[in-house]
């Protein structure tokens, strides 16, 4: 126990310093060991190779060269990035409209709608994909619906086990990630800004274009970032609804750690994905950073 004296004893100081060191070790040490070092290990792995089922720990660019030489990998890579872009674009339009609509509701309605967005967010990812598979199949309810309203005369297999199925599934599954950041950004715009704009003579449309839209842009950027990064790296959705025609880059990576068992090559493929993700995150950071924010 510390005495009533004003001076700290040597023992107290030692103990304090010990506690402080332990604290720093936990705070900085654990993330370093379990986040930074694994990422670095995995980066190093991408330069090694496998020969006759044995790991060869020698530095080399072989894996990257193989990726660049292989038409099929480059094709799948490009196709996946483009598909992610489509998913992001669709969700940006749908998500912004929905977020705007919800933010204009009041009281309880608004609260319940937001809750209804968060519920699917915390639902098991694969369950949602599984549910989509049921809906999209040849005997699925989407086909039933389209036939019932006369758009189709017989069940179509267009919606399952191809890239369209992956697009639809990812769009649906990632929608809350798009809507919520936009909604939060819209909610943060004080009503007095909208009042001021109208007071100065702006029509509702002008107020939307000149005040609401630019001020909610950081939210849209964040939503688009989540959407793109998650879509481009996903392998569960294509695995479950993509079939053989819906092969994506994420599956290519995943397969290296399963049947192919070529970990270094898989690591290299994911380092390329990591590069894409990091570029998107940095780009989003730059876009969302406002010149006008308090600093």
């Amino acid at each position: 126990m510390s005495g009533p004296g004003l001076q700290t004893t040597a023992a107290e100081r030692t103990r304090e310093r010990g506690a402080e060191l332990l604290r720093l070790a936990l705070i900085f040490g654990l993330p370093a060991v379990f986040i930074v070092i694994p990422l670095v290990t995995f980066l190093i792995y991408s330069f090694w190779r496998v020969e006759d089922g044995q790991l060869v720990r020698e530095f080399g660019l072989g894996n990257y060269v193989e990726f660049l030489r292989s038409d099929s990998y480059r094709f799948v890579f490009g196709r996946t990035l483009f598909m992610s872009l489509q998913v992001t674009a669709i969700n940006l339009v749908l998500g912004y409209a929905a977020a705007l609509f919800i933010s204009q509701r009041r009281g309880r309605t608004k609260y319940l709608m937001v809750l209804a967005l968060i519920v699917p967010l915390l639902m098991s990812y694969i369950i949602k994909i599984y549910a989509m598979r049921g809906l999209l199949g040849t005997n699925g309810q989407l086909n039933q619906l389209l036939m019932a309203i006369g758009l189709l005369s017989e069940p179509s297999d267009l919606f399952l086990f191809n890239l369209t199925a992956v697009r639809i599934t990812l769009s649906v599954v990632l929608l809350p990630f798009m809507i919520l950041p936009i909604f939060v950004a819209l909610e943060r715009i004080p009503a007095s800004f909208l009042h001021a704009s109208a007071d100065l003579g702006a029509s509702p449309w002008q107020t939307f274009r000149l005040v609401t839209l630019p001020m909610s842009l950081p939210g849209a950027v964040a939503g688009a970032m989540f959407c793109y990064v998650l879509a481009s790296g996903d392998f569960l959705a294509p695995e479950l609804v993509g079939g053989t025609r819906g092969f994506t880059y994420g599956r290519a990576v995943f397969s290296q750690f399963g049947m192919a068992f070529n970990w270094p090559f898989g690591a290299a493929l994911s380092v390329i994905l990591l590069g894409v993700a990091m570029s998107v995150i940095l780009l989003a950071g730059r876009l969302a950073r406002s010149r006008w924010a308090d600093r």
Partner: peptide, 16 residues
């Protein structure tokens, strides 16, 4: 937005 009046708001409401 059609009234020929303008307001100076208490918190100024300057567009950031």
């Amino acid at each position: 937005h059609r009234r020929p009046f303008n307001t100076v708001f208490q918190d100024y409401a300057l567009f950031p």
